[in-house]
Design a protein around this nucleic acid. Structure first.
Lengths: 235, 235
DNA sequence: TAGATTGTTAATCGATTAACAATC
DNA sequence: TAGATTGTTAATCGATTAACAATC
């Protein structure tokens, strides 16, 4: 595997080496989401502009993404939803491991064990871990083990992906234990920049920053409206 | 205000019109996070490369971002942490409204009312709303009101920002009520693409997609390693 | 056929990075 | 001064969009 900054060059379309971006993969996930919903509603075919509108991207972008992964439709006939879902599943590795552990069963962590959105996408949280013995109970049918057992669990069950929802103070330390046990990818909710080896995938979800971002744009627009009122600019 | 696709052109540096990207704003939030931590640890000055390393961006990027917003340091002397925090606060509109409501006090929503990360950034969830009467209680000192009261509440308290954690089925409908009442920005946890007027800011957090993303990259790397073992490529 | 849609190439656009002059 | 660091300009890089040929 050749890796450069953000782009991962992987082998997909029958041996051809190609590169895809993180945002492209995110869009594939979104397409699948929408396609599954449409399938449930009884739809069979879809055009690139329908799918684009439903997912908030342009029709060209949709076709470009599909073309990048060798997904083809029928000129004039659009795409078969079943076929799209199948192809995207293959690309995203849906048939392969989906086992995920949760580390940190506090406020946010325990909500994640009950989160319906994971089940809906067939993501299984197989076990949870927490340092607090009071939390070592079953939550939504998932056993919360003592944190000291996490290393052996990851080793023995060959878990590759972890959701990290521990306090910031211990996030780095815990991530190192996880990685040493064999974890390859982390969804990190702690608002810290984890220092990890290059081969490890980290996806950060920082809820405060996401919200601050909304607040910023709302404020920026209001400031601007106020200013335009007193000092209008001619277009 | 001039708006084009993703870029918002706003008036910041003493009347100069300039544009900044969403990712740039996200980085500013991260810088502030880190700077606050460093301040607590007693640091007073910082260089662009320190800050870059702590937040996972290059030193050039840090300086470029600062330059874009008219934040200047001292050649050779780096930046004063207090000054940076103050300037970033001003840019991100920290002194202005921070009032946020939460709509949907289910599994994820009620976890968000207790989320320490918001408090730490001085974000106040002032009220919550839920359709289920059983949930109309106080959670972490925040009253959960009946959903039917949300319109009047937003109107009367001039709330501008909402966190939306309702089931996907009703997300669009609820967002329309919020917008009609005066909400300008939404942090949306429902895995649907909200259709909103252009003047409304929506930030989507889709936890399943974030996790699927990690799973994809882990799988892609493992597939690749396997292949390289049987069919090594010369560099 | 005419019209509509895919698939791809080329153009554009924006964000990041490299290079380096300024200067403390 | 010499060395280090900022601030900015130019170059690069990648992602998105526009244009359009292919074709059903």
């Amino acid at each position: 595997m050749i890796e450069t900054g953000k782009v991962l060059i992987v082998n997909v379309k029958g041996g051809t080496i190609m590169s895809e971006s993180k945002s492209c993969i995110l869009r594939l996930c979104r397409y699948r989401r929408t396609l599954k919903d449409l399938k449930e509603l009884g739809y069979v075919k879809i055009f690139s502009d329908n799918l684009g509108e439903a997912t908030g991207v342009t029709a060209t972008q949709v076709r470009k993404d599909f073309s990048l992964f060798g997904i083809s439709g029928n000129k004039k006939g659009g795409y078969l939803i079943d076929n799209l879902i199948e192809k995207i599943n293959y690309i995203l590795g849906k048939d392969e491991i989906q086992k995920v552990i949760l580390v940190g069963a506090g406020n946010l962590g325990s909500a994640l064990t009950r989160y319906k959105g994971f089940e809906k996408e067939d993501i299984n949280i197989v076990a949870a871990f927490d340092a607090d013995p009071a939390k070592n109970v079953k939550v939504n049918n998932i056993q919360v083990h003592p944190i000291k057992d996490v290393f052996d669990y990851v080793r023995n069950h060959k878990v590759r992906v972890a959701v990290l929802a521990v306090p910031s103070m211990v996030a780095q330390e815990v991530s190192e234990i996880l990685i040493s046990a064999g974890i390859r990818g982390i969804l990190n909710f702690a608002p810290v920049t984890l220092k990890v080896p290059e081969r490890i995938i980290v996806n950060n979800v920082n809820l405060a920053i996401e919200l601050e971002n909304v607040i910023y744009y709302v404020n920026a627009r209001e400031r601007n409206e106020k200013q335009n009122k007193t000092n209008p600019v001619q277009s």
